[in-house]
Amino acid sequence: MKNPETQTKYGTLFLSTLQLSACTFGGGYVIIPLMRRKFVEQLKWIDEQEMLDLTAIAQSSPGPIAVNASILIGYRIAGVPGALLTALGAVLPPLVIISVISLFYAAFRDNRIVSLVMKGMLAGVAAVIANVVIDLCRGILKLKRALPVLVMLGAFVAARFFNVNILLIILVCGLIGAADTLRKRGREAGK
C-alpha cells in the first residue's frame, strides 16, 4: 500500500465485500446479483462475461459460493493480498453476527418479528435472483446462436428435474464449448 490510490482500492475492495457479505440472506447465490451491481455496474472493475466466468469457478470449487466469489474478485483486482482481504471481508459479518447471536440464540430463534422480516426478505431475495436471471438470459439470447440456448435449457433441466451434480454439469458444458470451438476452427481451416 504505497500510494493513496492503491490504498483506496484496498479499502473499497474490503468495505464492498464486507457490505455484500452482510447482505447474503437466503443462500450464497444472492451474492452474484449484489456483486454484479457493485463491481460490474457501479465500479466497472470487471465485465459481465468475466462475472459469469468467476461464478462458474466459484460454484464448482469447494466451500461457500459467497466466499469463493469474494476471493476471486479480490484476486482479480489486487492479486493474492486482495484475495486474502476479500476472504476476510466475506467471513467477518457472519462470524460477528453469529458470535453475538450465540449469546441469546433461543430468544432470537423464537422472535416473531425476526421471523416475519425473514419471510418477507426471502420473497425479496427470490425477486433479486429472478431479476438477474432475466438480464443474463437476455444476454444469452442476444448471442443469436442456438447452442448456448440449448446448453442453458439442458443444464437447467439436468439441475432442476434430475438433480445432476453441479460439477458434472459444468464438466459436460465445458466439453460442449470446447468441441464447438474445435469444430469452428476445423471449418475455418478447411476453407
Binding site: G27, A56, Q59, L136, V151, A159, G174, T181
Partner: peptide, 17 residues
C-alpha cells in the same frame, strides 16, 4: 470455447437456485 460453454450453464444454475 470452454468458458463460452460454461456461461449458459451458470445462468441455468442461478435460475435453478
Amino acid at each position: 470455447g470452454i468458458l463460452a460453454g460454461l456461461r449458459p450453464a451458470v445462468v441455468a444454475m442461478i435460475a435453478s437456485a
